[in-house]
Amino acid sequence: MILYEEAGPLEPVNLKPTVHNTMYLKGTGEWQLDDATRLWAAVIWGELNEGVETYHIEGADDGDESTPVTVVQDGKKTDLGIEIDAGIDHQFGENLRAELKLGYLFVGSAFGPTADDIFMIRPQLAITF
C-alpha cells in the first residue's frame, strides 16, 4: 500500500498521499519471528473507479525540428497495477524501534503509456516514550 499512497491519486487538500477513488484487494501475511521481530509481505491489486485520461507527447525530443509535436490521447484508463510490499521491523528495548519497507508497483495503464514501474525503499527509526 505504500506505493499506492505515494504514487496514487493525491489527497487534494494538503497534497499528501492517500488512496481514494479506488477499489482494491489486498492480501497480507505477517510472521512474528520472536518477541521483537516481525516479517511481513503484502500483495495489492487496485483499479480506479473513474478512469483517467492518459496521453503522451510525440515529436518533442527526436531532435528533428520539422517533426510536429503532438498530444496523443490514449483514452481513459483505470488499471493501477499490482503492488508487492515486504518488510521487517524490530523493537530494541522499550523505546526504540526500526523497520525496513520495500515496495514494487507494476504500474497499470492509468499511469500512462510510458510510465515505468515504481520501486520504493523506506526505512524508519523511531523513539517512543
Partner: peptide
C-alpha cells in the same frame, strides 16, 4: 506467530466523480 489477512476496499465519489489527479 502468524497472521494472514484478506482485504477488499472501495472508495468512490459516485458515478460522475472526476478523478482528482491526471496521471
Amino acid at each position: 506467530p502468524g497472521r494472514f489477512t484478506g482485504e477488499w476496499g472501495y472508495s468512490s465519489g459516485g458515478d460522475d466523480e472526476n478523478v482528482l489527479i491526471n496521471f
